[in-house]
Design a protein around this nucleic acid. Structure first.
Lengths: 207, 207, 207, 207
DNA sequence: AATGAATGAGTCTTCATTCAT
DNA sequence: AATGAATGAAGACTCATTCAT
């Protein structure tokens, strides 16, 4: 029928993807602004600069868009964490500290990302869809941390229960994020990061 | 209709208090069932065994009732924690372990109480009312923990940053509660409690 | 308000039933006005003199109300037909003519009732719910007509295929109702009724 | 883009007519599928193999297309009926029976055609546009039937009221179509056709 | 010619709240 | 004290239509 250009199937898809991303970004901003449960289609589309009806062209509905928004944030968080770990070199403990740093500094740690993650964790109990996503993401992350813990323990010649340490570590991160979200004046970013570094040092006998 | 006691100074108030408590309990159960944000007046009143309209007689509105429900849960949690600490004797580290135990066992640790606390923490960022309550409660708790940490450090002759340790501890608890709420098969009550005890042991050099 | 009689459970039910009937009547009027498919909740509630939201108190939703409206009309049509037949005496042919008369005169034959029936018949093909209701009502009616046909044939000593005659008769009625609804200037009530009487006379050799 | 024929006077018009017919056929199919009132532009264009927006190029809007679809079906029904009558020879009663046959057999009698006709008749009351079309078509058809009735009565030497007989006949057909559409298991095509033949025989004294 | 991006009107539904009894 | 009748606001969704490309 066509083949207007050599490659590049359906140029329409280009705009389509751009708009989806626009809406996802607007959804993330809206979640951050008013909270996952108070987001409205109106607000999202306003934030994206489009009219209410557009959402129906690109997503099944509001819930589907919010879900995509959460997934996008999760991907971003995961990506920045992995990137930081990679950049940290081979030392396992150094990698763990790098992960801590990535967990409390941009680009991963932003108001929007933490807000969305808190929404995911805080609502998973009452939404099988969110729970499923949470399980997939967070268990995977915990497993990766556990492997780092094992390596670090070997490297530091310390005997620890890596699984417990990983559970402690991930939930400490999550608790600090929640705390920062709920009471940022008390649980500041700096104190939160310091607490994590301190935990690692205590765990691996560096104190 | 009644006259349950010989001299009831304000019998209406008596019943009034009973009804309020009924509704608060029903609200707690509803939050636990469907989540803070999906609770309806209908559901609460049904759970309490009354009709929709009753809520208006005892509370300013739905939000006021939910707020009271959260406060009631917080009071219960605080009470059971203090009780456990008192019962644990004078040893600071023992008291801390007792607090951990209380944090993951009934009567404080129940599905309803954790659900409500998760709702409080997870929504505080987007509700000044909840945020204010959260700050008051959680900062106070953290301060109490900090004092215990200081005592325990002295007792164990360990040099720690009590403030950081208290922050770590409280957010670890909160993170584990959230984790249990969101993924109870992975973050089991037992593993969560063990992680906390382990943290204390690591912190105070018992490992 | 009244009676507070010895029996009479839940006086509230009284109002409830009245309101349901109000809404059903308003729905019937709305169907007659704008057609089954263009009826809006707004229009129904306006017609009933209430606000939009009331519908939710008494019916599951718009569709449920419309369904009840159709059932109510069907019951009314059936009742008036049976009544006419009963009043006509024992002669089967006389009863048939009485049924014809009832089919084209009040109280059964009204603009509203015919409109609703036409809506039922005209939409049944695309709605299993309506189809099911239609089958139940119309097959039963046809069967009753068939029995009358048999009796009349015996009485008139005419040999007819009662089943075919009943099918012809019922679909003639339905076709005339549709014709009256669609083109009342051409298919007048009088001509329609005459055509039916004439059919019976032809069938039973009275011409 | 193309030049399918050597001399196309108005090639655009040619394609234009083809597209219009495509859309009309798709509209007929859609009406048959989901009912006149639930047809969407989306569904029609999908069925035609085009995108949503195409409809605007060839029709004023959705309603105009549906109207054309109804007219097309009416033309087809009228054509097949006339053809059958012509082919039946000169005998008026034979022609009437041929018309009956054509009314319940392809190519006139198809699921699509009957569905669309039922839509026309069933919605005419609430749409002046449809009512007008219905009047024009059906009154003409009835008049033609009336003339055949008169001829047949003369041929059979039977004294009938041709106008009443024509009304009866046309509304019997319509009632049977509606019945077939609404309850095809009960009002089968065969029984419907038989009932019509039987009516003619009764009317003209052939039984 | 054809697409699909974008709009906005229209409608249903949910639900907290008020109030008469 | 308790009920449930009634309201009306708010939001999500569907869909016909317009229009730039």
């Amino acid at each position: 029928m066509e083949s207007t250009s050599i490659r590049g199937p359906r140029p329409s898809t280009r705009i389509s993807e751009v708009r989806k991303r626009d809406l996802i970004n607007a959804a993330i901003a809206s979640i951050s602004d008013v909270g996952y449960n108070d987001v409205t289609v109106q607000a999202i589309c306003n934030a994206a600069g489009f009219s209410r009806g557009l959402i129906g062209h690109y997503f099944k509905g509001k819930d589907a868009l919010l879900f995509e928004a959460v997934k996008a944030v999760a991907a971003e968080l995961g990506g920045s964490t992995r990137k930081a770990a990679s950049a940290a070199g081979a030392d396992p403990l150094g990698r763990l500290h790098a992960v801590v740093h990535a967990s409390f500094n941009p680009p991963g740690f932003t108001e929007e990302n933490v807000s969305v993650w808190v929404s995911l964790a805080g609502n998973a109990r009452w939404s099988e869809e969110l729970a499923s996503l949470y399980r997939e993401l967070w268990r995977g992350y915990r497993k990766a941390i556990e492997r780092l813990m094992e390596s670090a323990a070997r490297a530091c010649q310390v005997d620890i229960d890596a699984a417990t340490a990983a559970l402690t570590y991930t939930q400490l991160i999550e608790g600090l994020w929640i705390g920062w979200a709920a009471d940022p004046d008390e649980v500041t970013r700096e104190r939160a990061e310091a607490a994590c570094h301190c935990y690692l040092d205590t765990l691996f006998g560096k104190l």
